[in-house]
Design a protein around this nucleic acid. Structure first.
Length: 274
DNA sequence: AAAAGCCCCTGGATGC
DNA sequence: TGCATCCAGGGGCTTT
């Protein structure tokens, strides 16, 4: 489900509310992708200092150690007062009960994870997950020249390179298709066939599409919502994703769907050039 | 070492 | 209605 915009929207929705809270208890449901790495009751008494994001990971800084949260394909977070919060359902797999509310991870498919890193970002556990991540597309450090060089270094179809997260993070299956449509570049184009001008257009498209999606509260296809249950609206302005056979908004040709790396890609073969 | 495939898991939509 | 099949917003790991 969640790509960079959804993770960022989630983060912004509850980070101010949980900052400064003291952990009262923590509870696990069914196993997630990886084990937590410590007994949940060991978290009791620590403080939540801040919530940051790296790629599609949320980093919950504690007074001692760090929690890494990932929402996988179907995960979402909720932050709500303990009173009035329903009992954990069959798909609620992590509750962090604090003095300021309960942070709850809901994840039917359980591709998500909550991992404890005792030594913060320098921890081997954290480095393993975060160490190979690419540039943050909404940060100042996302440099056009470095992006172009990254494209030049690979013959992989550009859609797959974007999805891989080693050059730039956060672009998932929806936004990869949207960004390439905006840039007028075929998802099938080998990355190193993209010249400097088109690379610059792609760079700008990544920034503008992701920023617009954050602005719109993310994309809600079926069940995404932020930590207060509010859905996003970006799906209303999706140009190609999940629109196979519908007319291109730019040229009216029917949009196509192809498989790349066992995942659907949507594009306009007329507007998007190799 | 880059690149391609394989899984993990559940549920909803579709088709017979 | 019931059952089988396909598909889904991710990404680490294994194999080429």
């Amino acid at each position: 489900m969640p790509e960079l915009p959804e993770v960022e929207v989630t983060r912004r929705s509850f980070a101010p509310s949980i900052a400064g809270a003291r952990i009262l208890s923590a509870h696990l449901g069914k196993p997630l992708r990886w084990p937590l790495g410590l007994a949940p009751q060991a978290l009791v008494g620590r403080r939540v200092l801040a919530v940051r994001r790296r790629g599609k990971y949320l980093l919950v800084d504690l007074s001692e150690g760090l929690l890494l949260l990932h929402l996988g394909m179907s995960g979402s977070l909720r932050f709500a007062p303990a009173e009035g919060l329903p009992a954990a359902g069959p798909h609620d797999h992590f509750d962090l009960v604090t003095t300021q509310g309960v942070l709850r991870l809901h994840d039917p498919r359980r591709f998500g994870a909550v991992v404890y890193a005792p030594q913060g970002e320098e921890d081997p556990v954290a480095r393993k997950l975060l160490g190979k991540l690419g540039m943050e597309p909404l940060e100042e450090s996302f440099a056009p020249a470095a992006f172009y060089q990254g494209l030049q270094a690979s013959r992989t179809p550009v859609k797959l390179l974007l999805l891989g997260g080693k050059l730039v993070v956060g672009v998932g299956n929806i936004y990869a298709s949207e960004v390439l449509f905006t840039a007028g570049i075929s998802p099938l184009a080998p990355a190193n066939s993209i010249g400097p001008r088109r690379a610059r257009r792609l760079y700008e498209a990544i920034r503008s599409v992701l920023a617009a999606a954050v602005e719109q509260g993310g994309t809600t296809l079926k069940d995404f919502s932020n930590a207060y249950g509010m859905p996003g609206h970006f799906q209303l302005q999706a140009q190609v994703y999940d629109r196979e056979g519908l007319p291109c908004t730019r040229c009216a040709a029917p949009l196509r769907r192809v498989l790349q790396g066992q995942r659907s890609t949507f594009y306009c073969s007329h507007c998007q050039k190799i």
